[in-house]
Write a protein that binds this DNA or RNA. Structure first.
Lengths: 244, 244
DNA sequence: CGGAATGTTGATTATATTCAACTGTTGTGG
DNA sequence: CCACAACAGTTGAATATAATCAACATTCCG
């Protein structure tokens, strides 16, 4: 599933042939660049670089300059709003071939969140300048970027809605249902949490203690079975009802 | 300050000369169209229409199709996430010359919020199609739209942060300070709430009862004086301290 | 094996909601 | 102009919800 970096120490890889192919492959897959010419993609690639992150390392910290738009080649990150004390609120998990940081990079603003690797991760860093140049020349690319930003906006809005209008149990139930929705197994769907329960709790804007109690509650009610990070959905209909 | 609509009944105005000037003036002011040619702006204007809303009327309802991108010619609206029972969460107030609905209009999605007029309001409705055509032809316009969407994203993100990390009193204090920040009077700054206390409470994601108690508390502590919608900031430093 | 990180559980507390009753304000038609 | 209805705001009491604190158990790695 994952392909190790060719450089195991240090954060930035060298320009080895394998790395170059990885970088170009990631860029070729970006929805934003679907309408760019091969030449334009090559120009972007020539200005981009790979950055390897060990588990726990940060791709960017709140308030620091954004190095550019960021694409996950492999691995997993969390985008989080850290608090002075206690745990951060997790805004989003970002997995392979997903992009983040478009908004602050485009506007040349400091990072509005921190991005921490939840596993060893490889990023493609695309600096602002070549992207701006391309946007000026390729309206279709600018449209795709706008569409991607619009998507991000709508999904944040629905986060806000969930936070304002549903309690923790409802958010948890909805989250489990949405995880199960992606899985297509027949019988009892099993889902795997994408991160530790503490981190998932932060994603749901609750404390880890509260999440623990809620999972126990759902288990006792026969809705789910919890085995570490693996959760079996026993009564999807009832779970969906709780999410209302 | 405000100019009445030339049509007082019905929601859509006719094509009177005064209306046409209003519509063209609003469009000429749009940041998104700064780099468009006069001809392109005229094309947009020819496809746009005015829509007049009485106080309390909705420009769009949650889940219904978006008529296009919307610009406020004059008046005031709230963008809100309604709940089945009880009050909505207010996401943003939208005043003169401000735009909303870019994201759902661009993506041709149903309205992700309802937009309700807090005063008699005139909107310019810009349908999706002519905007898309312009985006294809004018990269600079697409860039401005992307930048505007990126701004919206960042400001929602900071809403989310405030909600997750500050309690109601902190959010209220920060809100009062930010209102006062715009006013440049010397001595004790006075601010005027942009809407009823009930609506402002929804903007802060608290109940009107809670807001009432908090305002009383701040008054008793000598931080502010409340006279209806007008609030005098007596101790701005302490208020800012409470917002931390 | 040992230590750190993660997770669980119970007790207590903070925060704000909900409910209910009451007061004040505003706008409208008689 | 007044009466009145609808809306807006205030206050108190009871309650819901989840955070916090503290102690302990478990799991994961090196």
């Amino acid at each position: 599933m994952q392909q190790g970096p060719s450089v195991t120490h240090g954060e930035t890889t060298n320009g080895g042939a394998r790395d170059l192919r990885l970088l170009e492959g990631v860029i070729a897959n970006m929805p934003m660049l679907r309408d760019a010419t091969a030449h334009q993609r090559a120009d972007i690639a020539s200005h981009a670089r790979l950055r390897s992150l060990r588990r726990g390392a940060a791709a960017c910290r709140l308030g620091e300059p954004m190095p550019g738009m960021l694409v996950v080649a492999y691995g997993l990150l969390k985008l989080a709003l850290p608090r002075a004390e206690g745990e951060a609120r997790v805004v989003r998990f970002v997995g392979s071939n997903e992009t983040f940081g478009e908004a602050p990079a485009l506007l040349d603003r400091p990072a509005p969140f921190e991005a921490v690797a939840l596993a060893d991760t490889m990023l493609v860093v695309i600096p602002r300048a070549p992207v701006l140049r391309l946007l000026e020349r390729q309206p279709a690319v600018a449209c795709r970027l706008a569409a991607s930003l619009a998507e991000s906006y709508l999904s944040l809005l629905s986060e806000l809605q969930a936070l304002a209008q549903h309690n923790g149990m409802q958010r948890l139930a909805a989250y489990l249902v949405s995880l199960a929705g992606k899985e297509q197994g027949e019988g009892e769907p099993r889902v795997c949490l994408p991160a530790s329960k503490t981190t998932v709790a932060a994603r749901l804007s609750i404390q880890k203690e509260t999440l623990s109690r809620m999972l126990r509650d759902l288990s006792e009610r026969g809705c789910i079975r919890v085995e570490g990070r693996v959760i079996t959905i026993l009564d999807r209909a009832r779970l969906a009802g709780l999410a209302a």
